[in-house]
Amino acid sequence: MDVTNEVMPTSAERINEMLEPGPDGPIYMVNLLKFKEHAEYEDGRETDLTGRQAYGIYGRGVSELLPEYGGKIIFVGDVTFLMLGQVEELWDEVAIAQYPNRGALVAMSSSEDWQALAVHRTAGLAGQLNIETIAPSR
C-alpha cells in the first residue's frame, strides 16, 4: 500500500466524491497529521512558528467553528509509537472530529471563517490523511 500525504485534495474525482451525500448519520473524520518543522505561509510572511504551532492556531479556531455545523472534536493526541505495520515516517498527531454528516463537513470547509483559518493549516502541515469513518450499526 502506497501512502501519499496531502494538504488539499488534488484530483477532481476526489472533490466530486466529497460533494456526494455520503453515509446517513454522523461521520467521524480521522486526521493523521504531519507537521512541517517550520511554518511556511503562502503569503510569504515571516514567522518563528513551528508547523505544529501554526496548525494549533487552525485547530483552536476549528474547535470553536465546529459546533456551528453540528460537529465536535472527539480526540487529539500525539503519535508516539507504531505497534503494527510499517511506514517510512510516522505522523505527528491524530485528531478525530465528528460531523452530523458529510454535508456539514463540506459546508464548514467552504465557509469564509474556515478559509480564514486554513492559512494556518496550510502553513503548518507537511501533509495529512483524512479518513471518513462511521460507527458500525449494532
Rank of each mutant, 00 (worst) to 15 (best):
S11C: 03
S11M: 05
A12N: 07
A12Y: 02
R14V: 12
I15K: 13
E17C: 04
M18W: 01
L19E: 11
E20W: 02
P21Y: 06
G22A: 10
G22Q: 08
D24L: 08
G25L: 05
G25S: 07
I27Q: 01
I27Y: 02
Y28N: 05
Y28A: 02
V30M: 14
L32M: 12
L33Q: 06
L33N: 08
F35G: 03
F35D: 02
K36W: 04
A39E: 10
A39N: 09
E40A: 14
Y41M: 07
Y41G: 02
Y41T: 04
Y41R: 06
Y41P: 02
E42S: 14
D43S: 05
D43C: 07
E46I: 09
E46D: 13
T47D: 07
L49V: 03
T50D: 09
G51I: 09
R52H: 13
R52W: 08
Q53A: 15
G56M: 04
Y58F: 12
R60D: 11
R60P: 00
G61T: 11
G61H: 11
G61I: 10
V62D: 06
E64V: 05
E64A: 14
E64I: 01
E64Q: 15
L65I: 08
L66P: 09
L66K: 12
P67L: 09
Y69F: 15
Y69D: 05
G70E: 03
G71W: 02
G71F: 04
K72W: 03
V76D: 10
G77V: 05
G77C: 05
G77W: 03
D78C: 00
D78I: 01
V79D: 06
V79R: 00
F81Q: 14
M83S: 14
G85A: 12
Q86W: 07
Q86D: 12
E88Q: 12
E88R: 14
L90D: 11
L90Y: 03
W91M: 11
W91V: 12
D92H: 15
D92T: 10
E93F: 02
E93A: 11
V94E: 11
V94D: 09
A95I: 14
A95H: 06
I96F: 04
A97C: 07
Y99W: 13
P100I: 00
L105V: 06
A107L: 03
M108P: 06
D113Y: 01
D113M: 09
W114C: 14
Q115W: 01
